[in-house]
Design a protein around this nucleic acid. Structure first.
Lengths: 314, 314
DNA sequence: GCGAGTCATAACGCTTTGCTTATGACCGCT
DNA sequence: AGCGGTCATAAGCAAAGCGTTATGACTCGC
């Protein structure tokens, strides 16, 4: 058994295709095929089975893929930990964040950490809710910045920061804002009926914000027409263009609200008060460089002019 | 990086010596040396440093060794899980037990499981308390049979069985037993003073029974002369030979008590009621074959004529 | 039934691993 | 100083890993 065989098999398991796995790994298709065959022979158990044109994992294959993925993640972590042990400031921190956090919350912190530890290696993977927790539980990242972690899985929140979800609409929408002269309009208070008749722009399934929006509709007892758009940027610009309204993290529209391009709507239960959570695995120590990153994250004054993260006490 | 490099390094870390590691791995000394060098170069961090005649791990080496050990354990587990997925009865279960459990409690269950699943592979490592929990936490075994697991570490007890620790003395010791005619003498009740003046045979440091004996001395407020012997068998035979008395699991001296070769002493708080615990890791599912073993372990009637294990309900 | 798509196998070469034995470097002990 | 113990390095070799291209087997969809 070989590590590259494991890597090849994991890629096959994830993509569900030898061809795609080969493309991702930048090798030829037979190379991957041979690796999987060799691994399967070594284990004495078929890991994949042909399924028509493509293939599918066997039961043993699914089980083994989970383990293999953990093995590789753990090994990657080990590399970082070993390198970081002598010089934490030259080690590596592997982050994953949900889209909004990755695009609007994290950048100033990344910059601050970079300035303080220019030799540290940083990786940030941005994905939706499902993706980031998957990465954390398979040990492919050290820390996740996102909404509340799922109850299943051994996660431990280490820091939080307020995340206010607001309903925003285009500036010119509805009656004139109460203080049209000011650059920054005051939030407008609206009724449930007003919310119910608008078109709502929502994220793709699997997104945490989409889930929260659906909860909101249920709480309000409304089922407005919705339009699904795959990114926060697309939604923000579409709201600006008058396509509809949306529920979105205030962090993602802070600039537009300040400049008056969008306006906030208040209503029953709105805005929603949530938190950003910085989450690690419960059962193990943080890698040295990741711990260093966390220190910076929760240090007062690291990022001026924004709300700060706070360490979660046990 | 290569798996065999990891194996070589882990062996060096455990034994603390290239030479011994080579002996364990059945290869020449330079082979191990080269593997460690290659690994160290690959990681970009020295893992070992020469220390006079021998060598010692660097800080990074110690950290990496822990990870590497887990990686290999996890991989081993993955093998078993994959093989066991299709045919649990042909898979593998990796056990570790403390000495007493391994020698006196487990054998009938091993035999019963073997009879039921003759194709399953079984490994049993017998060691003292410290050793078995180490094996479990590094994923080198699936289940441990021993005393109570340490509070630190993510362990979950899955089954228990009574473990009565009794004080035993040679048959002819002290005044005549109350029913000298019967083959099996009744337990004799003694005072603390009588216990305090005897020589006590105790196990080596690291043994759970030794720890319990020390607790007993403290509870009774006595500090009798002790003699340390490295195995239960040595202790049992020494007691028989009149060397002193000892605290020992009833399971380890059941035959001698029945035959009248030893006699049990009752006293304040004696016998001590403890439990054997069958323990797995809290954060993951049991491998299929290990689960099968557990089923047999707790099935009524599997082992006739002895006290049975009982599943622990959550 | 034919082409397109996907995976497995065959044939082959290059590189690396992993092992050996021989030898050198270093330490600690007498 | 010399010797025994331990580890590192050197040189050489067999085997396996890992890659490639070419081609065959099998589905699916038209």
């Amino acid at each position: 058994m070989t590590l590259s065989q494991l890597r090849a098999f994991v890629e096959v398991a994830v993509t569900g295709s030898v061809r795609q796995a080969a493309a991702h790994l930048l090798v030829s298709q037979p190379a991957v095929s041979a690796a999987v065959t060799a691994l399967s022979r070594d284990l004495g158990v078929p890991l994949v089975a042909r399924d028509g044109r493509g293939l599918e994992l066997t039961a043993a294959g699914r089980v083994f893929a989970g383990y293999a993925r953990q093995v590789l993640g753990l090994l990657d972590e080990a590399r970082g930990a070993a390198a970081g042990q002598l010089h934490p400031e030259r080690g590596r921190v592997r982050l994953a964040a949900v889209t909004t956090a990755g695009e609007h919350v994290l950048p100033p912190y990344l910059a601050a950490f970079r300035a303080r530890c220019p030799e540290a290696e940083m990786t940030l993977e941005v994905g939706n809710r499902n993706r980031v927790w998957e990465l954390l539980s398979y040990r492919e990242v050290d820390l996740v910045i996102g909404g509340r972690p799922p109850a299943a899985g051994r996660f431990a929140t280490v820091a939080t920061r307020a995340n206010r979800l607001v309903v925003v609409a285009p500036r010119s929408d509805g009656p004139e804002p109460t203080n049209a002269e000011a650059e920054r309009p005051l939030p407008r208070t609206v009724t449930v009926a007003e919310l119910a008749e608008r078109v709502w722009l929502v994220r793709e399934p699997g997104s945490g914000t989409r889930g929260t929006a659906e909860e909101l509709f249920e709480d309000l007892g409304i089922s407005p027409p919705t339009l699904t758009l795959g990114s926060n940027g697309a939604i923000r610009e579409s709201v600006r263009a008058g396509l509809g309204v949306t529920l979105i993290s205030r962090d993602a529209v802070a600039r537009e609200l300040r400049l008056g391009a969008l306006e906030e709507w208040r209503g029953p239960g709105l805005p929603l008060e949530r938190s950003w959570h910085v989450v690690g695995r419960a059962d193990e120590e943080l890698a040295p460089t990741a711990a260093l990153f966390l220190e910076r994250l929760v240090s007062p004054g690291v990022v001026a002019g924004t709300e700060q993260f706070h360490r979660v006490e046990d």
